[in-house]
Design a protein around this nucleic acid. Structure first.
Lengths: 72, 72
DNA sequence: ATATAAAGAGCCGTATGATGCACTATACAG
DNA sequence: CTGTATAGTGCATCATACGGCTCTTTATAT
């Protein structure tokens, strides 16, 4: 997943759960400023930050093999 | 995946491909020092760093739903 | 028009990630 | 033992992520 896709996934998931940035920031332990920056495509979050956000959204960061054959 | 699992995955993948840290650092564009720190479990890499490493190993960073039911 | 809620962005101090260099540790070959 | 390859670490510098505070923007409601 490219960076923009990751952001989109997080954002859509948050909105699907009807959680505001403010609430998500609180329950994830990530600063509101940091979350706002991330969702607006700015910056380069650390793995820890991404994990904290993903976690409370019921998601997790993972590594998977790229499908080299029928990928694109 | 927890942090240690991510590291383990990267490390095993690199060794499976018989690539040294030095080579991986060169082809991924990540500093050797940074890669060493990451694989030895130190620090908290940025998403960009993780993506660069995963990419040249034929892997990608992704977000997936946690299996809440039969997970643990 | 005013009020409220949510998101985005500027300013800015602090913490720390990224990196190079030099050194150490380990394993293995000779 | 020496030499080589690979991995890990201490130190120092620079860039930047984190986060609080404040202001703006946009949408919606009264």
């Amino acid at each position: 997943m490219h960076y923009t896709e990751l952001i989109k996934t997080i954002k859509e998931r948050r909105e699907m759960l009807q959680v505001t940035q403010e609430t998500l920031a609180e329950i994830s332990g990530v600063g509101l400023r940091t979350l706002k920056q991330f969702e607006s495509g700015k910056g380069n979050p650390t793995l820890l930050t991404l994990q904290k956000i993903a976690d409370v959204l019921g998601m997790e960061v993972s590594l998977r093999l790229k499908n080299l054959s029928g990928n694109k």
